[in-house]
């Protein structure tokens, strides 16, 4: 793998993602530069070096007190136009996805969203992988522009362990940016649960087959017996709001890789299936034996979840002596 002198830049509004991207940059064998954006000096600059940054650009400006795509993208592309990094890595979060295209469009460079793989080819050029066509294809892409912006899916890279002996350069930049034309009226933070679905060994999940929120206890019962977590398809979190977004599995939510995935009352649209493709065993419960989830499962149980889920919980208890 040939090394390149050009910098790889990393930014995320989310600290965990930021750390993953720093590790990702290092895996490419490049000089990794963290970009820290804010309205005042932060104490976290050294943390970024400890987590893998060779250099930190600290961009300060009065318009940068909180994340807004216009001033944040302007801060990034103003500096990137001058420094010409090889690539700018951002998280494939909703905020990362609204920032990346503005930076790329302003610079007239390529942008690859939702990368699941980032590597170098034999000539040292960056190659990106991403899932396309709702999980049916894996696209391999490269950029022919002088720079590139990528958003990277969570957990593609494992964060490095913090090393306080690492040294790095800190470069302060004052960048004049225009104020955001979109203003924040209010934010309602959803209480953050302790759920960590992407790492869960067992996920018991529900969909439109559930008639009301209270009935999700049928998922919880089996999840508790098996030591698993509960998940859902998009309608239950985004439309009905019965579960927080962090339970939403699918193309616009999270991807999981459990040993066992149990889907109850989920029809199995491709947009959901893309999120469960790395499950080892998939068991589905559905009234319709021809539902797409049934074809995409290892074990299909045809019937009403309202009678089958309690029976299944009973069977788990009996079998596992709980």
């Amino acid at each position: 793998m040939s090394k390149t002198e050009r910098e790889i830049w990393v930014f995320s509004e989310d600290q965990t993602t930021f750390n993953e991207l720093l590790a990702g940059g290092r895996s490419l064998g490049s000089k990794v530069c963290a970009v820290q954006i804010g309205d005042k000096p932060s104490e976290e600059t050294k943390d970024l070096i400890n987590m893998g940054a060779d250099k930190v650009y600290v961009i300060e400006g009065p318009q940068l007190s909180e994340f807004q795509p216009e001033p944040y993208s302007e801060a990034l592309f103003t500096l990137a136009r001058r420094e010409r990094p090889e690539a700018i890595l951002l998280g494939a979060t909703r905020r990362g996805r609204e920032l990346a295209p503005r930076v790329a469009a302003a610079m007239g460079i390529g942008c690859v969203a939702d990368c699941t793989g980032l590597l170098r080819d034999t000539e040292g050029a960056l190659v990106m992988e991403r899932v396309a066509y709702a999980g049916k294809g894996l696209a391999t892409l490269k950029s022919i522009s002088q720079s590139l912006v990528c958003t990277v899916k969570p957990r593609v890279f494992e964060p490095l362990s913090s090393d306080s002996t690492r040294v790095g350069e800190i470069q302060r930049e004052v960048v004049e940016v225009k104020p955001s034309r979109v203003t924040l009226v209010r934010r309602e933070h959803k209480p953050k649960g302790k759920v960590n679905l992407p790492e869960a060994k067992i996920v018991v999940s529900g969909g439109r087959g559930f008639k009301k929120k209270e009935d999700l206890i049928l998922l919880q019962e089996s999840a508790d017996i098996l030591g698993g977590e509960i998940g859902c398809s998009r309608p239950l979190s985004s439309d009905l709001g019965w579960l927080p977004e962090e339970h939403h599995i699918g193309i616009s939510g999270i991807s999981i890789k459990p040993q066992l995935y149990i889907a109850a009352g989920i029809s199995g649209q491709l947009h959901h299936l893309v999120g469960i493709r790395d499950s080892r065993i998939v068991a589905a419960i559905n009234t319709d034996k021809d539902a797409p989830i049934m074809v995409a499962s290892d074990y299909a149980l045809v019937g009403d979840l309202y009678t089958l889920m309690p029976e299944l919980a009973k069977a788990f208890r009996e079998l596992l002596k709980r």
């Binding site: 390529g110 396309a132 066509y133 294809g137 892409l141 490269k142 022919i144 493709r277 499962s297």
Partner: peptide, 14 residues
Amino acid sequence: PIQILKIDALTVRR
């Protein structure tokens, strides 16, 4: 600027 090198089919056997 972004060129597609290939798109492999992702199949999951169940």
